[in-house]
Write a protein that binds this DNA or RNA. Structure first.
Lengths: 376, 376
DNA sequence: ATGAAAGCGCTAACAT
DNA sequence: ATGTTAGCGCTTTCAT
């Protein structure tokens, strides 16, 4: 089949015996047209399989604008949920939604923002914390102004604004409070030696969790030297590697605070591989409560960050003060702990800093595991 | 800062002291322009933060080309992986990639395809099997032709073509073979009463798995009445509900073939909730080998469908015979079983169709569970 | 009630 | 080497 030319409004007009203007009026539906001609035009359009050209329409100001989400990777369940929330809310507002992923590459992020700007997206939503440096912050500032100049609006989702005066909407969680609560939960269960697995210096979300973890430790009268942060970054693989390594080096911690649920997944596997059990030997907690966290072994205690709601809030807020160019909006969503089965009382044999009280589980390696050092 | 109007090519021209045509030539780069003016124009454009209007550009014929993925939902790990593969391969080819999700709504799918076509996507990739009916098939045919007419190309990813003559590329798995192998694995372990949980009549991928399951049963000398398919659809929730219900009704099956890993996740939870253990009491297998399947309790035996490679293949194939409009391409990717810990020998007390041999686990409900009926 | 005409921002002949 | 002109397909005044 040959690629016949696209049928235009003019052909429909000819077929219906009216002018293009009339066809436009019928199709746009924003102008009263007598039922008689209306029907005639509609029939002509249908018989020709006419579809309006969005470019022409957009050019002249008619086109529906869409909302764009830009995130690191779609395979991360948390990001995916945020995207789904954005999608849902956008759909409720009759907007189409597109998601682009950067793979952590700032160049690609820049291209994507640019592309969205070109397409005339009315909303560009940047999701998730990246590792920020000054150059990056400067770029976000440029995005915000450029987008505003083009009549659209930037939303920072799940991360703080680098500059409160930025013409951007920010929607995020209180990661510090969440981490504080989760750490307290661990302390309440009796844990004193808790390692934070998955720090990522420069990433605002992780930095906040680490801060909450440290603050909670202090609040419970533990010395700062009891804090131990392993900056292995995020992801299941990173969690698995770091935990495996930690297990061969130390024996005196009783709980692990994973930077997020994927890190927790890797850590759980590493612990199982080492022949230890959760929570009998070591307690583990995660962060985000991804849908499959309840299917881990054991079901994971974690903090629920309503990802989908984050996405929904982003577009709701942005659309609400649409065209108003009001003062920068800042919205913080609450989180709460979800208690499942990965936390128990500390294992007595792991509490002491000496290597006394060895069990069959770690007898093979316990003797060459040094105690936790003070934080740097 | 007020939202000044979008800067146009004319303003850049004025700033650089040249005509719009010259600016266009410089920016499009497809016409020799002296370095002197070239630099001047570029500087003017940059200082004005000029971005070309894609709509105007597309209207007149010069659209950039990007690749678009359209899938049901990004939160499904399998789909997300396919999208990531597409993204990666597109990126390798210097293309930008956008993903749109339909939420299973065919109207939204249509809008998205339309949008992509209008936006000048050179590749539109439809991922995953939907429930197909004649109207839907007709629509896909229209997509294919419309896209071809617009110089782009349609790729059907993870589902068969409704019509072999369609100007579309199809890349998929041999679901029937995979399901056959997996069912055989179960039979080899000694299972005779295996229920298929998660049928979705009309969905080509699931229908193929059911067919493979039935064929394997027959091949191993089991009567067709040993087949038992529960059409509960896909998703963790559906799997959980259906499994819970099944557990209260029947007692004589020893293994469950879940339609995909998410269904398996729900089934595992339901089994655990009922106080039964996997694989001691019941064996469970899934399909797709999503990244977290290894973190289930127990780690799930499933068939690995290389999702990312599926996505990569889709764009590689499509880009390879780009502009060639050659004969329809059909590509089938291999799959293989990944054996983990969710399959064991059948539990003796569940094998008999009578209610003899009760164990503490199911003694409470076993007496009112009827035997599996023959398939309809 | 409906047509004619004027662009939207851009590119591609066609001029110079 | 660069400016001028004519649309791309559509919507929207402004006429009729």
């Amino acid at each position: 089949m040959a690629a016949r030319e696209r049928v235009t409004i003019r052909e429909v007009a000819a077929r219906a015996g009216v002018s293009p203007a009339t066809v436009s009026r019928v199709l746009s539906g924003n102008y009263p047209v007598p039922p008689a001609t209306r029907t005639r035009v509609l029939k002509a359009a249908r018989s020709l399989d006419y579809v309006a050209n969005v470019h022409a329409r957009a050019l002249v100001g008619g086109g529906r604008s869409m909302v764009a989400v830009i995130l690191r990777q779609v395979t991360n369940p948390f990001y995916a949920q945020v995207a789904e929330g954005v999608e849902a809310e956008a759909s409720d507002h009759g907007r189409l939604c597109l998601v682009g992923s950067t793979g952590g590459d700032t160049r690609r992020e820049m291209e994507l923002v640019q592309l969205m700007r070109e397409e005339g997206a009315s909303l560009v939503i940047l999701v998730g914390g990246i590792v920020e440096d000054d150059a990056y912050r400067a770029r976000v500032t440029r995005y915000a102004h450029a987008l505003q100049g083009a009549g659209s609006r930037l939303v920072l989702c799940g991360r703080p604004s680098s500059d409160p005066a930025l013409p951007a909407i920010v929607v995020e969680f209180d990661n510090e409070a969440g981490a504080h609560a989760l750490t307290s939960h661990l302390v309440s269960a009796g844990h004193r030696r808790i390692v934070f697995l998955g720090g990522l210096p420069g990433n605002s979300a992780l930095d906040a969790r680490v801060a909450g973890y440290r603050a909670a430790l202090t609040a419970h009268g533990l010395a700062d030297e009891d804090a131990h942060v392993i900056d292995c970054g995020l992801g299941r693989g990173a969690g698995h590697r770091a935990m495996t390594e930690l297990l061969t080096r130390r024996t005196d911690f009783t709980a692990v605070f994973a930077g997020d649920d994927m890190v927790a997944a890797g850590a759980l596997r590493a612990i199982a591989d080492a022949g230890l059990r959760v929570p009998d030997d070591i307690s583990v907690v995660g962060y985000n409560d991804i849908p499959l966290a309840q299917d881990f072994n054991p079901p994971l205690t974690t903090v629920r960050t309503p990802a989908e709601e984050l996405g929904r809030a982003a577009v709701r807020l942005a659309l609400r003060d649409s065209e108003k160019l009001s003062a920068p909006v800042h919205h913080v969503l609450g989180t709460h702990i979800v208690v499942r089965d990965s936390v128990g009382p500390p294992a007595p044999h792991r509490e002491a800093r000496s290597t006394g009280g060895i069990t069959p589980h770690d007898s093979a390696t316990a003797s060459d595991r040094p105690a936790l050092p003070a934080a740097p």
